[in-house]
Design a protein around this nucleic acid. Structure first.
Lengths: 344, 344
DNA sequence: CTGAAAGCGCTAACAG
DNA sequence: CTGTTAGCGCTTTCAG
């Protein structure tokens, strides 16, 4: 009847008073209803309902030491793989009754540190994060010091729990594919490696496979960011006799940007030059030309990372898990056509 | 020296003891440092630093009644406009020292309700949300009852504060554009309208403009979801003499799916049929054909929504703000080519 | 400018 | 099955 509208949020104590039980019993009614007599439970719930009462998690968290909230720290959601990663992680979190606090770092290690501190001040039970480089991350050290559970997503590491694809192997696969198409001079394009150890590993993997296949050394061209190109650098790269016939870009967003730039520079993809990406964003298949890439399912990475984190929080077992990748053959990388003048 | 590693998180009380001041002074040192003598402040900060102390927000929130955390409830991040919306909102939130808790509903009103309750149990200071339909939303009622501030994003409403584009006007613009290209029979394609009032408004807008321009009535075809097509329905739609020459899809993801389906059904876009979308996702420009669409900047919507929400929380003023839209002319909608048999 | 005291809402021992 | 008691970490009057 007297449902309070707006204002005075009722507390558990008042519910207890009205239901003529102790606060502890009301608490039990909500947390372990099995411990409360059916009749008492019913009465408590009736009173609670009538007031629209829901337990205040702040009080509960403060007392119990668990917020049932996880943090998610990702470089950006502009890249659909990270958006997928969120969805995978949140879905898994929700399944176990956890909420998710999220923040993006735009690949900036300074923001990264600030973001993580802001998050852990909220006393999160754990954090899933993608850092620039786990080997020299102040953030990971801070988490460890404070005893906050965490799992890396996308970053590979032998010293920290993580959920990622085998970037080295995936890059090998791509180089092998390009080689099979007849390419012998491949270039690797990425943003600054200091911002992404994934890109660095992909480069290393590419080079090692190129070597073992007897291809030319893969040259590395660095764009201003991980998602934008510099036409000047591209033009220079394509100027000269030893120019690459295929470009392996460290991610799909960059590959997309490269294709647009090449078009602006008067090159046709894949007729004049082949382009491959990494990530397997869904838009790759509807692009023109469709993107040759490595699928590294973001949803799986996020879901797995969250699963590992919960294992760590709830069962104190810390482990890593690799997520499989697949080569997606698109139209952006084609069989090498020797120029007319070189044909027999 | 004796930096505690892992474990026993230091509390403000211990810092106070060690700095030989009262807890209240330590609290002031962190919240209103100006109220503390420089020397005392320095000493407190030194001790705090030494222990890696950071105030526990749970205690602070419980006592002060503010968590400095906002909730964000969106249908899905698979749609890049919502990912952008998050980035805009989070950026604005961070600017004012707020953190963001996020959840996705997959357009499901049941999930919507559960999600919002889970969030507000965390005592958020406010919530930004996109609901199926604000006119009959249990969720909005719940927020109002509990006195939680909120702002709608994407939903338009005259009774709730919101940040959105003028969907009616934008749809009019698109129909006008298609009419200018010579199209007289346009169809509107969307998911179930009960899941999205935006789609409903866009349909209404389209029809009203079609009427005023003297075009045929715009027929509405409903796909199983807002992002996936049913080839059967499409095939049926295109079977017959009065088939539409242009399809206006309620969002870009759906438009993309429609283009793929049409291709599977043997139609060429835009030669056989024109397709337009709504949202202005960035991949639209690199698709083939590039997408004709309405740009409704998600980043702006999110940023504005957050700004309005903070105004509400911090200055008790509640208002709405419209975000401008623009027509993007792509290649997916072309001038109507009359079939040869009909040409003079 | 600083301290003492009270308590935000809840839960975890421990008794009964 | 239920109650009592104490206190999680912090801020906020109100005095000094």
């Amino acid at each position: 009847m007297d449902n309070k509208r707006r204002g005075a949020p009722v507390s558990l104590i008042e519910i207890a008073r009205e239901a003529a039980v102790s606060p502890a019993t009301v608490s039990r009614a909500f947390n372990r209803p099995a411990l409360v007599q059916a009749k008492t439970l019913e009465r408590i719930m009736a009173v609670a309902e009538q007031h629209g009462f829901r337990p205040n998690r702040l009080g509960s968290s403060l007392r119990s030491g668990s917020t049932r909230t996880l943090g998610l720290v990702l470089p950006t959601l502009s890249n659909p793989v990270f958006a997928d990663c969120f969805e995978g992680a949140e879905m898994r979190a929700r399944e176990s009754g956890y909420s998710v606090m999220m923040t993006v770092t735009h690949y900036d290690p300074a923001l990264e540190a600030a973001a993580v501190h802001r998050l852990i001040d909220h006393q999160l039970d754990g954090v899933i994060l993608t850092v620039a480089n786990p080997r020299q991350s102040a953030v990971l050290k801070a988490l460890k010091t404070r005893g906050v559970s965490y799992v890396l997503a996308y970053n590979e590491s032998s010293t920290h729990p993580c959920s990622a694809v085998d970037n080295h192997a995936a890059a090998c696969d791509m180089v092998e594919h390009l080689a099979q198409l007849g390419h012998r001079r491949i270039a690797f394009i990425s943003g600054p490696l200091s911002m992404s150890d994934r890109a660095a590993t992909r480069l290393t993997g590419s080079r090692s496979r190129a070597r073992s296949l007897g291809l030319s050394l893969i040259r590395h061209y660095i764009m201003p960011s991980h998602t934008q190109t510099d036409n000047g650098i591209l033009a220079q790269m394509l100027d000269g006799a030893a120019r690459p016939s295929a470009l392996f870009c460290s991610n799909d967003l960059l590959a997309t940007a490269v294709i647009v730039s090449l078009r602006e520079l008067g090159y046709s993809v894949p007729d004049d030059i082949s382009v491959a990406g990494f990530d397997g964003i869904r838009y790759g298949t509807v692009m023109s030309p469709s993107l040759t890439t490595i699928e590294a399912a973001g949803y799986e990475i996020g879901k797995t990372a969250c699963h590992l984190l919960l294992e760590q929080i709830e069962h104190q077992q810390s482990r890593s898990q690799q997520v499989p990748h697949t080569l997606i053959t698109g139209a952006s990388a084609a069989r090498l056509n020797l120029p007319l003048t070189h044909r027999p």
